[in-house]
Design a protein around this nucleic acid. Structure first.
Length: 583
RNA sequence: GCCAUCCUAGCUCAGUUGGUAGAGCGGCACAUUCGUAACGUGCAGGUCAUCGGUUCAAUCCCGAUGGAUGGCUCCA
């Protein structure tokens, strides 16, 4: 009977994992092995690389150990005693941890022994391995991981396992992973024909099909509609620029490696734009500005290009050509709070329309400086303090579920980021509002205030969907491809029972199109059942079946993607029923 | 970029312990004209990711490159 917490069991399982690996690789050098969400891991450096093929054997050995009633015993040792157990030559990582502890002023360290395995460890642990349920344990995969998460240090092999209290919980977890796989946007993007990749075009460069492009346009139009009353104006900028722009903005120094370089006929070197803000500042700088023009709100949906590390790319979630619904507000310090509130209004309205703005489905990061590394941020400290306070105040007033996260600020200012989860719980930043006191200064932006003095405006960067690619990946998974009516690429498919009713189908199509609905007719010679199945797999919200019965009184038989048979409607009453949800 | 695994038809996947390959779905043709999740028959479609090496012979073994996946690092 176990009275220890599942986290304790997971941590102990990590020790058993190390024990099992040492049986196979007595020379293995050990890193660390903590409990994590749903399980545990341990990092190893072995002479022969550990691979997935070894997992079965290791898992079997772990289960054997569990059955053997291994007792976990705790001891406190002096540093020197511990160093004798973890000598530099055979266990350099443990030895380094001991050095770290010594540097922190520790004089005694905790040691746990379980069977013939001894580890440097604070605990706590189970008393006996029997407290762990072997049927609820599974090793999942191996992965590389840098020692101390530092890419300049050696890379160890990390073995991940999951552990629960019961086999039922393990099965439920594995089932959840299966379900998540089914709604993976990479799979659905292919099945629903939304986007594709080409080896000839390159990694991280998605190609959007007509349906995928429709989705993008619908999203962008929705955002435009919601923010109409906030006074944004569309602008257009070229996709390349001289490097001078980023040398002035400060981006060159920080992100030079990730810029795509472009050369023309002259020696002049251009770069693909990795962001739009510097360009937008030059629109502000285009002529003398008065305080009467502020806030000046510019926006544009446009693509930026970033040479992301190859290993970082992931479907649409992380790409090299990133389409942003990017906006920049130039305003006075006094206007900042109202402007940010307005942005949050739009974010709230937009995500509410998708059912994603619900408690527990998102959280908000008030991203501020890391006080330990002030050199990473540009601009003077007082302005930073003010800006961070403004954002936190707004988050509080707007009742957002926010957390202050140190070290997440951009180098030019603090920000509010809206974080949403995908199908398997990975979090993605979508909407954002970022304050910037630095860039206006660097570009020497000025406006004339009411008393005729020149002043520097504040700049606010904002995105509602963020990266359209990332946004699409999240909503494809959120809806498992079954988009709400207004977002469905095809909203209605008309299925005539047989070819004899094709003319009627066409007349129904014309009526629906006149009502601005996106409609297709499926006239293929497949059976009715087959065409319904096809529509269902394409996740088209409504199927209208028309045949002899319907022609007689100008009706359609409605089948809903989500609820099945929905009854008979006249064409006009069907349109009236769905029209509100269709736009 | 790093570690590991992987790449066979448009898609999902079999297969060959080295003798140049198959299925289902999809596509096309014919047939069918059907009442709420798969009618039937036939055909087309692959230098087995690319390039190089070993070999009498490579889709299979080795290497490089490209791409994908799971992590790590990074993310304006």
């Amino acid at each position: 009977m176990s009275h220890t917490s599942i986290d304790t069991q997971r941590h102990s399982a990590a020790h058993l994992l190390a024990t099992a690996v040492l049986q196979l690789h007595p020379e293995a050098k050990l890193g660390v092995g903590p409990a994590v969400d749903n399980g545990f891991y341990y990092d190893f450096e072995t002479a022969e690389p550990l691979t997935d093929a070894h997992l079965k054997d290791i898992e079997k050995r772990m289960k054997k150990l569990i059955g053997r009633d291994v007792i976990f015993e705790h001891r406190e040792l002096s540093l020197d005693e511990a160093r004798a157990i973890f000598p530099q030559n055979t266990q350099p990582y443990k030895a380094e941890l001991l050095d770290d502890l010594a540097a922190e002023g520790e004089t005694v360290v905790g040691i746990y022994t379980s069977g013939d395995f001894t580890d440097l460890c604070k605990g706590p642990h189970v008393r006996s391995s029997k407290e762990i349920n072997p049927d609820a344990l599974k090793l999942m995969r191996v992965a590389g991981a840098y020692w101390k998460s530092d890419e300049t240090r050696p890379q160890l092999t990390r073995v991940y396992g999951v552990l629960f209290a019961t086999k039922e919980e393990l099965d439920a977890h594995l089932h959840m992973l299966e379900e998540a796989k089914k709604r993976d946007h990479r799979k659905l993007g292919k099945e629903l024909d939304l986007f594709t990749f080409s080896d000839l075009v390159g990694a991280g460069l998605p190609l959007f099909t007509p349906k995928g492009t429709l989705l993008r346009d619908l999203i962008v139009e929705k955002i435009h509609g919601l923010q109409k009353k906030y006074g944004y104006q569309k602008v257009t900028i070229p996709h390349i620029t001289k490097r001078d722009l980023y040398q002035t903005s400060g981006h060159w120094e920080k992100f030079g490696d990730e810029l795509f370089k472009v050369k023309g006929q002259s020696d002049q070197e251009f770069v693909m734009k990795p962001m739009n803000c510097p360009h937008h500042t030059q629109i502000f700088a285009g002529h003398k500005r008065s305080y009467r023009e502020l806030p000046l709100r510019l926006m544009e949906t446009t693509t930026v290009y970033r040479d992301e590390q190859a290993g970082e790319l992931l479907g649409l979630s992380r790409v090299r050509a990133i389409s942003q619904d990017d906006g920049h507000v130039f305003c006075t310090t006094e206007q900042v709070a109202a402007e940010v509130s307005g942005i949050i209004d739009v974010i709230r309205a937009f995500y509410t329309s998708l059912g994603m703005f619900e408690e527990g489905k998102y959280w908000v990061s008030v991203s501020v400086r890391d006080p330990k590394t002030p050199e990473k941020y540009l601009g003077d400290a007082t302005r930073w303090d003010d800006a961070e306070h403004i954002l936190e105040d707004i988050a509080r007033k707007e009742h957002l579920p926010y957390t202050r996260v140190e070290g997440e600020a951009a180098f030019y200012g603090p920000k509010i980021d809206f974080m949403f989860k995908d199908a398997i719980g990975r979090e993605w930043q979508l909407a954002t509002a970022q304050l910037d006191f630095v860039m206006p200064e660097r570009f020497a932006l000025r406006y004339t205030d009411a008393s005729g003095e020149e002043q520097t405006p504040v700049m606010i960067h904002r995105a509602i969907a963020g990266s359209l690619e990332r946004f699409l990946s999240v909503i494809i998974e959120h809806f498992a491809g079954a988009f709400p009516l207004w977002l469905a690429p095809t909203q209605v498919v008309i299925i005539p029972v047989s070819e004899k009713f094709a003319d009627y189908a066409e007349s129904v199509r014309a009526q629906l199109e006149a009502a601005d609905l996106r409609v297709t007719v499926n006239n293929q010679s497949d059976t009715l059942g087959k065409r319904i199945r096809t529509a269902q797999k394409e996740k088209i919200p409504y199927m209208l079946i028309v045949g002899e019965k319907e022609i007689a009184d100008s009706t359609v038989s409605v089948r809903s993607r989500d609820d099945g048979d929905a009854g008979v409607y006249t064409v006009t009453s069907f349109i009236a029923t769905i029209q509100d949800r269709a736009q």
